[in-house]
Design a protein around this nucleic acid. Structure first.
Lengths: 233, 233
DNA sequence: CGCCAGATTGATACACATCAATTCTCGTGG
DNA sequence: CCACGAGAATTGATGTGTATCAATCTGGCG
C-alpha cells in the first residue's frame, strides 16, 4: 500500500520528489479563513523533507491533509520530534533568519504554502490575521510545555498513555486510533527507543488496556485505565 | 489542586513577605516600547507564586527585574520547569481559559502586569503591538523546542553544559555566570535530580572546565570544552 | 551556639538503553 | 506463484546512566 522506500533518517537525504503547484486564487469567502487566499498548494510524499533546520525561512505552511513531523537531529544522529502536525496546524513561522527545526512528511501530505514576505504584508493589512496566528502559536507553546513535562518527568508507560490519549482526542474516533507514524517516530517523539515503545505497548495490550492487530491501528479498550496511567497533571 | 504538599516543592512554602503594589501609569514615551503604558507594576518576593496553573488567565506579565520560573507539577509532586525568564520576557499569555503552568518568583522580582481585557483592546488598536507579542511568542516556542531535544535526547553532562552556556550567553559576563536558582530548580529544569546535577557540576569542576567556590557563582574556564560537551546541534 | 535548608558525597537499585536475534509484512523479480 | 530481500516490529539477554536512599558537610541566621 505505502511505498516505504527509506528510513526516517535517510529520508532527509533522499532526492526530493517535490510537487509544487501554484494554485488559482482560491474561494473568496473572506472572514471564514483569513489565510485562505494567500497560499499556494504544495504536496510532499511520505518521508520527504519539506525543509531543513537552519534553512532560510522563506515560507510558512499550513497542513491541509496528512501528518507532518517537526524534528531536530544532533550531529551523532539522535533525533527529537517536537510535534506531529495535522490538518489546520501552522508551522515554519519564525522571527529569525532560519527555521528552528526540520519539517518532514510522515504520510503523503498536502500543504498550503505562504511566502514570508506576502504574509508579513498581509498581517500588516489585516490585523485579525495576526491575532489568528498569535492564537495558533500560543496553543503550540502550551502544547510544547506539556511535552516538556512528559519528556522531563514521565515514565515510559506514562508517555505512551499520554500519547495514545492525545491522538485519540485529536481523532475523536471513539476508541479507534490510527497511528500515522512508525514506532521509531513515536520513540523519537516520546524520548524513548523503539524497543521500549514496542515493549510498553505490548504490555498494555497484554493487560487488555489497548488492543491492536496491526501496529498502526490501536483500539483504546479501557480509556479510564489509560487516563490513570497518563497521570492527570 | 494547587497546594504544594510535599518536599519536592517545599521552597514555595517558605515564609516570605509578598509585596504587591499597583503603580501609577508609567512614563509616557510612546513608540519605544509598545507595552509601556499599559501595565501596572507588581513585585513578588523570592519563591512566591505569581499565579497557579489552571487559574483564570486574567493577566499577563513582563519581567522587569529578577528571575521567574514557569512550572508544572504532577499530583505526586514531580515538577518540570519549562523556562527561567528574565528582564524583557513575557509570560502568562494564553488564548484559553486558564494558565498552562504556574509562575513563581525565583528571586525577588519586579513585573509589569497587563490586564487581559486591556491588552486585547490594545492589540486591536495597535497592530504593531500584536506583532511584537507574536515575535516574543515565536522566540519562546523556538526555545521550548530546543529544550525538548535537551530533555528527550541529552545526557546529564550535555544538559548541564547547555544550561551553563545558555546562562552565560544571556548574561554575557565573559566567563562569570550567576545562578539565580538553586540546585533543585536546575534539576527540575533539566529533567534530572539534585544529586545528579551536583555530581555532574562537581565533575566538571574537577576536570577544570568550570570553577566555583559558592554554588551560585560559576566561572566557565574552558568554554570550548563546554561547547564540545554541549554538542552543537 | 545550634538549627536548618541547601549542597555534596557514597552505596545501591532499577528503568530504560543497548546489543542481538527472530518474526512479520509486503513488494519484487525470477 | 513463490522464494527472496528489506524494513518494521517484536522479543530476549545484558549493560549502564541516572534515580533513590542515606549520610555528611556547609553556611547563614535567630
Amino acid at each position: 500500500m505505502h511505498a516505504y522506500t527509506n528510513s526516517a533518517v535517510s529520508a532527509a537525504r533522499a532526492p526530493m520528489a517535490m510537487h509544487l503547484q501554484p494554485v488559482s486564487a482560491a474561494a473568496p469567502r473572506a472572514g471564514a479563513d483569513p489565510l485562505e487566499r494567500l497560499g499556494t498548494a504544495a504536496k510532499f510524499g511520505r518521508n520527504h523533507t519539506i525543509y531543513f533546520e537552519g534553512d532560510e525561512a522563506g515560507h510558512c505552511y499550513r497542513v491541509k491533509s496528512g501528518t507532518v513531523r517537526l524534528c531536530k537531529v544532533t550531529e551523532d544522529g539522535r533525533r527529537q520530534i517536537a510535534a506531529f502536525l495535522t490538518a489546520g496546524d501552522l508551522f515554519g513561522w519564525t522571527d529569525h533568519g532560519g527555521y528552528g527545526f526540520s519539517a518532514e512528511a510522515v504520510t503523503d501530505v498536502t500543504l498550503e504554502k505562504f511566502s514570508r514576505a506576502r504574509i508579513e504584508d498581509a498581517v500588516k493589512a489585516f490585523p485579525a490575521l495576526g491575532r489568528h496566528v498569535l492564537a495558533l502559536l500560543s496553543t503550540q507553546l502550551a502544547s510544547a510545555h506539556g511535552h516538556l513535562l512528559l519528556l522531563g518527568r514521565m515514565t515510559a508507560a506514562e508517555r505512551i498513555a499520554n500519547f495514545l490519549l492525545e491522538l485519540g482526542r485529536r481523532q475523536r474516533n471513539d476508541g479507534a486510533v490510527a497511528l500515522a507514524m512508525c514506532r521509531k517516530d513515536i520513540a523519537d517523539y516520546l524520548g524513548l527507543t523503539v524497543e521500549t515503545v514496542s515493549r510498553t505497548m505490548n504490555a498494555l495490550k497484554r493487560e487488555g488496556i489497548i488492543a491492536f492487530a496491526e501496529p498502526e491501528n490501536v483500539r483504546l479498550k479501557q480509556s479510564a485505565a489509560l487516563e490513570r496511567l497518563a497521570m492527570a497533571a
